[in-house]
């Protein structure tokens, strides 16, 4: 089986626990993401999602283990891995447009000014920001608009991997819904590989091809990989009619509510901690062949069998 586009191999993160010992956030975590795939990772606070995100972004170093993208080991931040931060991270002294051209100029230093600006405006328009509003400073924009600018900045740079760190966490439910749809639209047109952290199960099901479920920390692991085989294009109102929707949703709710606790805190004992694949057909869990990890077939235990 060929290696996935992005593979995380035996990644371990430990911190000193302040009492002379070490705190293992996660150990030997291994999983992969295919090119063009939209993957969400779900788990309780403290399970190390943000740590994984920071390592993928190159802003933090794992204690051990490697991240490979396109066959090359990644280290340090790179324009190939774009990040949308939860708090937008727009530069407050620049207008919305200048925030986007800031990124485009870094990505394409040879482009003439006019081309940079046209490119930035195109991506701002994709998230619904057009006209005078692009000349406003972030402080003059609503939270939703700021996150749109941040998304436009990330997509405009055509990264090989787009990392979204709870991008809608600070937004109200209605705004969140609108921007989720915009994100789907812009993603649909680009075949962008996306890795996203979220706390919201419905958001994950609407957006993702696959949901990675993490157990509680410390010694968290990516325990399951749930395939969302609901056909695209998806809409909030129609996906609920899919035969698998409630099965997936119940499975995920049960995992986060109960099993994330039961499975927590098991040492890796030197084994790769790769997730078991969970797939649903006609509303029932079926045994799925493990994807990139053929050496570790696991017994599936879907709660709503």
């Amino acid at each position: 089986m060929s290696k996935p586009f992005l593979s995380i191999e035996r990644m371990t993160q430990q911190f000193p626990d302040g009492q002379g010992g070490t705190l293992t956030v996660f150990e030997h975590a291994s999983f992969g993401i295919e090119k063009g795939e939209f993957v969400c990772i779900l788990g309780h606070s403290g399970c190390g999602k943000s740590t994984i995100m920071n390592i993928l972004a190159g802003l933090a170093e794992p204690t051990s283990g490697v991240v490979k993208m396109d066959g090359y080991e990644v280290s340090g931040p790179s324009l190939d891995r774009g990040v949308v931060f939860q708090n937008y991270s727009l530069l407050p002294w620049l207008s919305a447009l200048r925030n986007v051209t800031f990124g485009v100029k870094a990505r394409y230093p040879d482009w003439p000014r006019a081309k940079v600006e046209a490119h930035a405006r195109e991506y701002l328009a994709m998230v619904g920001l057009e006209g005078d509003v692009v000349h406003r400073k972030p402080s003059q924009l609503s939270g939703g608009m700021r996150q749109r600018v941040s998304i436009a900045r990330a997509f405009a740079n055509h990264p090989k991997l787009l990392l979204l760190d709870e991008p809608f966490g600070a937004l109200d439910a209605l705004t969140r819904g609108t921007i989720q749809e915009e994100l789907l639209k812009i993603w649909g047109g680009t075949e962008q590989t996306v890795f996203m952290i979220t706390h919201d199960i419905d958001e994950a099901i609407l957006l993702a091809d696959r949901i990675l479920l993490m157990t509680n920390g410390p010694q968290a692991r990516v325990a399951e990989s749930v395939e969302i085989n609901i056909p695209r294009p998806r809409e909030r109102t129609t996906i609920v009619e899919d035969a698998n929707y409630y099965a997936i949703r119940n499975h995920t709710v049960q995992f986060l509510g109960r099993r994330s606790k039961e499975l927590a805190g098991r040492p890796a004992e030197g084994l790769d901690q790769s997730p078991a694949t969970v797939r649903f057909e006609n509303g029932h869990a079926v045994a799925a062949p493990a994807r990139a990890e053929p050496e570790s077939p696991r017994r599936l235990r879907a709660v709503n069998e």
Binding site: G58, L59, V83, F85, S89, L91, A106
Partner: peptide, 19 residues
């Protein structure tokens, strides 16, 4: 966060300092 924006955009030390 703003320094991280510069880092993820691969800005060098001088560009980060000035922009």
């Amino acid at each position: 966060d703003w320094v991280n924006v510069a880092r993820t955009h691969e800005l060098g030390h001088f560009r980060t300092a000035f922009t």
